[in-house]
Design a protein around this nucleic acid. Structure first.
Lengths: 344, 344
DNA sequence: ATGAAAGCGCTAACAC
DNA sequence: GTGTTAGCGCTTTCAT
């Protein structure tokens, strides 16, 4: 009665090493049958009786299929890797993770995330680890829109760039539509009747810098208001920059300003208050990003244009899985929607 | 010459199905030998020549070990699951992910993340999926400190609660030390010579509410200043709450106020400015959380107490892997450090 | 010092 | 309808 075979003892064992064979034995069928009912395999006809016994056995033993073993035999894993520079650590780009995860789950995949801090060695290590775990593909993403030179190892699997793009467009990419965003912001102000609209742009060279300016300019010209370079100033893209830029911008007696982002708008609010200018009565302002901690709680709440982080992540997964058709040669653009609050 | 065995063709195949056997063949050794050199197995003596040939073959073929197959045979996976309610979507708690990931990597584990939005069904699904992927253990975390009733399925593996705790303390937990945080904030103000220190507490019942108050009170009494209930007001924990609470608090001619968090402090700043009160000259303020987008960029930059998200994540992993000893019965506390800027 | 072989938990032909 | 069997890529005794 000494247990020489530690295999078939009670489920009193430390932790469920309950495998398919155990279920099969308990149900009095073969593992193949168990496999078929577990997977609802349509090409296999299993009798109601057996099916029921198997179900009960699974239930009673607390059986959990081993996804890894399954992957090994089917050859296709259910992992999608997400390597990010600073997404998890940055306020609000976390939505990329959420979008990617939701979309991945929808198709039976789970996310393997690695936040590398932009460190190249960490990136390589992360990608290597993902490759070794036989991921279905990798999403390589950045927390702000920019050009990148993707790690070479990405070529070993399917990969898509999210929130960034490679200059040689060797990889599929999905990025926010900065130009449309610039247009949207400007439209918001134009619609409210403003004609002298300043633009506090970022001083950081980037797709956002050129794209939003282009949208702003385009819409102003299209509306017959005309583009006045004097109304465009550059500043660092934070509260300090916005505060400081306000000096330069407000001397042009503008009635509205489009800010590069919400933080800049927050700085502008401060400056306006110092001058006893009321938002939106004396000065209308629209931000960008929709960084909710700020935008939703400024006084008055800020009307802004949202960066579609969630959609970026989701679109990345769809591209990766081939659900969305890749746009040839160029990055797929995702729209930046307006978020109307009370500052216009 | 028709390829009946699709196995041994050139590496021209679409994507590296290079397996150990291929390496073995190329190096003229057995798979066992390859395995030994790949893992630097100390209990196996491999000749320099063979070792070298294997290394070269690996290099030339671009071989990547299959971590899943390895897991299958060794029985221990290298995954740690992180199920979060809203960490990835919340500004700044993302540091929990980062801390967990860094610590996990350090020990050869990779993170499987699932942000569930607090949805119970999603939680169960996430945990089930992690269990099926045979994770080493699961970190169950919340973006703000609170009591939870952990999903039952967590019992099927090792689990630790991060940023939350279960009332029946059935699971290990690691949470921020709210009391010490309250003391720290108060100390900052006391050190600057303040004696009439108000506290805008949150109106949301929580460990933060009671803990920080306790620390505040404790320190005030210890410092001989005494605790005056009139100086404590409650408010919603955002900018609006801070602005509104300012009314109630400033009529007690206090010289300093400890705010439940940075957002409340931001609201207080607004109110102070409306009254032409200068921070810190007329009013010293300290926040809590160190929500950097806000705290670092307020005018003046806010002195605050940081919520140790990163450490929480890292400590969670350490507890999970048994690197840190569990504190019996009660949750492990991690300190909230002061972050000195210019508002005191 | 190196290799043959068994088997991890599972799926997928193919028998019966 | 259900069982047998051959692997998936790898590690690991145990021979040699």
């Amino acid at each position: 009665m000494t247990p020489t075979t530690p295999r078939d003892d009670e489920p009193s064992s430390p932790r469920s090493p309950v495998v398919m064979r155990d279920v099969a034995k308990a149900a009095g069928v073969s593992v193949a049958t168990v496999s078929h009912v577990v997977n609802d395999n349509p090409r296999a006809r299993i009798g109601q009786a057996a099916r029921e016994r198997v179900r009960r056995a699974i239930e009673e033993l607390g059986y959990r299929p081993n996804a890894l073993a399954k992957t090994l035999v089917t050859g296709s894993s259910s992992f999608i890797g997400l390597v990010a520079d600073a997404i998890a650590t940055t306020p609000f780009a976390g939505q990329i993770i959420q979008g990617a995860q939701d979309e991945a789950w929808k198709h039976g995949y789970v996310l393997l995330v690695a936040n590398t801090g932009g460190n190249e060695a960490a990136e390589e290590q992360a990608i290597a680890m993902m490759l070794e775990h036989k991921v279905r593909g990798i999403l390589y993403s950045t927390w702000f829109h920019r050009a990148v030179t993707p790690p070479a190892a990405l070529a070993e699997t399917d990969a898509v760039l999210v929130g960034c793009y490679s200059e040689d467009s060797s990889l599929q990419a999905v990025v926010p539509d900065e130009v449309q965003g610039g247009r949207t912001a400007t439209q918001l102000l134009l619609d409210a009747g403003h004609r002298r609209i300043a633009f506090i742009n970022t001083s950081h060279p980037s797709p956002a810098q050129t794209g939003r300016l282009e949208g702003y300019r385009e819409l102003l010209e299209r509306a017959g208001v005309g583009y006045d370079p004097a109304l465009v100033v550059e500043a660092t893209s934070d509260q300090e920059g916005g505060y400081e830029a306000a000096m330069r911008v407000l001397e042009h007696d503008v009635t509205a300003v489009f800010c590069h982002n919400d933080r800049v708008a927050m700085g502008l609010y401060d400056a306006a208050r110092d001058r006893s200018l009321r938002v939106p009565d004396d000065l209308a302002v629209v931000g960008f990003d929709d960084q909710e901690v700020i935008s939703a709680h400024l006084r008055p709440p800020l009307t802004t244009v949202a960066l579609p982080h969630y959609d970026l992540g989701a679109a990345g997964v769809r591209l990766l899985l081939g659900i969305d058709e890749p746009t040839a040669g160029t990055a797929r653009l995702v729209a930046c929607p307006p978020v109307v609050r009370s500052s216009v």
